[in-house]
Design a protein around this nucleic acid. Structure first.
Lengths: 213, 213
DNA sequence: AACAAAAATGGACGATCGTCCATTTCTGCC
DNA sequence: GGCAGAAATGGACGATCGTCCATTTTTGTT
């Protein structure tokens, strides 16, 4: 029986986090009360205080968990991508628009926490770094490409393209949030690649990344 | 003294709306309680019930007012723009990134209401139509341009470009929301026009719209 | 089987929520 | 100046909020 107990503690901790995220996704952060969370978790009132010393810490843990889940998926897509920078960029875009990466629950949770940063400053780090990491991955890949084109100021150009692309992806998330049933993932990807092919026609076409020559 | 009283009623109504928006911008919708609103408005508790029959209706009125203020500015920019479609597009972009169109308060309020739609369904129409009108303006202008280029399917292309552009603008708002001090309006505009010039080089360059030829 | 420590329970607590209404104050007209 | 009606007040109300802790239950060791 050795080691059978410690994970039980972790189980309830995670159960609370899952219940919190489910509640935020379904009824919003405003209506996500302690009573709501413990009802969904099927646990008793005191568990939140025992594991998190209060509601704020639980919300922070939930935001952190959601953020880490996002990163994990991003890194998985990058590992599966071909090494050329345009394929890595394509992988990031596809990940951010995929059936498992962009779901109603995920986009709702993300935006709830983003908006709640003002009321719960403890949440700031987890709504702030999401695009920071995505941005870094994009910028590294674009810099590799821009250097090849012999641009005079590759740093500025790659930073600009990255900022624009991240903004566009962020906007598609908002689009999906407001009209999930009307959203067309393939069309969104096509639009992004149309933009990229206009900027870097040697590396992208309307279908995605082009083979390096 | 004729007519001096009727506006007083409207004054207090508007005072409540203004106080609500100020509270939402400063401390977020979650912390915007009835007590908070009436304290900011300097009015008594019962006024909300008298003018709006409840908190929900007041929030809806505040969201509506914020939405209408946005439209008003958009239409003003359009009236001041040259008639050619590329100039109208430039005007919409400049409006959405201007010092008076994109402020910390405005972007916070917009996103608070957007996120709260789940908890307060009564707010949906006002967070939903914002990009609908912007989208329509963009699409009308792009359609005019695309038709001139002799594209085989001008409707689809202009819809795609519109969707991408609206997403990018939306993303810049989120960017500004999260990093208002780091945000560079001129750079954001340059990035947008870089994208557009890649797609429609005859109508846009890095500085904005190009003169028709 | 007994014991100590950890985990889990669920009710009590004061604070605050939004709603509602009896009362007071203000306003325009006769 | 007095009256009718609208506007405004602010306290009372029950519900619900998040926190906390005395108690019970479970677990691992002897």
């Amino acid at each position: 029986m050795l080691g059978a107990n410690p994970p039980a503690r972790q189980d309830n901790r995670q159960t609370l986090i899952d219940a919190t995220l489910a509640s935020v996704a379904e009824i919003g952060l405003i209506r996500t009360s302690v009573s709501e969370i413990i009802t969904r978790a099927g646990l008793s009132r005191g568990m939140i205080h025992l594991h998190f010393q209060g509601k704020d810490n639980l919300l922070a843990a939930a935001a952190k968990h959601s953020s880490e889940r996002y990163y994990k998926r991003l890194d998985q897509y990058l590992r599966d991508a071909k090494p050329d920078p345009q394929y890595r960029i394509e992988a990031l875009i596809q990940c951010d628009l995929s059936e498992d990466g962009l779901t109603e629950d995920i986009v709702r949770i993300t935006h709830e926490f983003q908006a709640a940063t003002r009321a719960f400053p403890i949440l700031a780090p987890y709504s702030d770094t999401r695009d920071a990491r995505l941005r870094r991955y994009f910028e590294e890949a674009f810099t590799q490409i821009i250097i090849q084109t012999g641009e005079t100021d590759p740093s500025q150009v790659s930073r600009d393209i990255t900022t624009g692309l991240v903004a566009t992806m962020e906007g598609f998330w908002v689009d999906f949030l407001l009209h999930p049933q009307d959203f067309d993932r393939a069309r969104a990807a096509r639009i992004v690649f149309r933009m990229l092919s206009g900027l870097l026609p040697d590396y992208f076409d309307l279908n995605g990344a082009k083979a390096p020559n």
